[in-house]
Amino acid sequence: MATKAVCVLKGDGPVQGIINFEQKESNGPVKVWGSIKGLTEGLHGFHVHEFGDNTAGCTSAGPHFNPLSRKHGGPKDEERHVGDLGNVTADKDGVADVSIEDSVISLSGDHCIIGRTLVVHEKADDLGKGGNEESTKTGNAGSRLACGVIGIAQ
Rank of each mutant, 00 (worst) to 15 (best):
P63Y: 15
N54P: 10
V149E: 04
P29T: 06
G83N: 01
G139E: 02
A90C: 08
C58M: 03
S69G: 14
H44N: 15
E79V: 11
N140H: 07
G17I: 02
G45R: 02
N27V: 13
L9T: 15
G142E: 04
V95F: 07
K24L: 11
N66W: 02
P29K: 05
G34M: 05
K4A: 08
G109D: 13
E79L: 10
C7F: 00
G38T: 05
D84K: 00
C7A: 05
R144G: 02
T89Q: 04
G42E: 08
V95R: 10
A153T: 07
I19C: 10
D84M: 02
N20V: 06
V8M: 11
D93R: 13
H81C: 01
H111V: 14
V104M: 13
E122D: 13
T136M: 15
H111K: 15
E134Q: 04
G83S: 00
P75H: 07
D12P: 14
S26W: 15
F46R: 02
G115F: 01
N140R: 07
T55C: 06
S108D: 11
D91V: 08
S143D: 05
H81R: 02
L9Y: 14
D93S: 13
G94H: 11
P63N: 09
V119S: 00
D12Q: 15
A124K: 13
V6D: 05
L9I: 08
D126K: 00
N54E: 13
L39D: 00
I152L: 04
T117S: 12
V15Q: 10
T117Q: 04
D84T: 02
T55W: 02
S135M: 02
C112S: 13
N66C: 13
G38A: 11
I113E: 02
A90S: 13
A2K: 15
H111N: 14
G130I: 09
R70N: 08
P67V: 14
K37Q: 10
L127N: 07
E22P: 01
L127E: 14
Q23S: 13
I114D: 03
Q16V: 10
K10W: 14
G109R: 09
V32G: 12
A141K: 01
T136R: 09
A146T: 05
G86C: 03
G62E: 01
G38D: 15
G62A: 00
L39N: 07
S108G: 14
V98T: 03
K10P: 07
E79N: 15
F65C: 06
R144I: 01
T40S: 11
S135K: 02
N87E: 03
R70K: 12
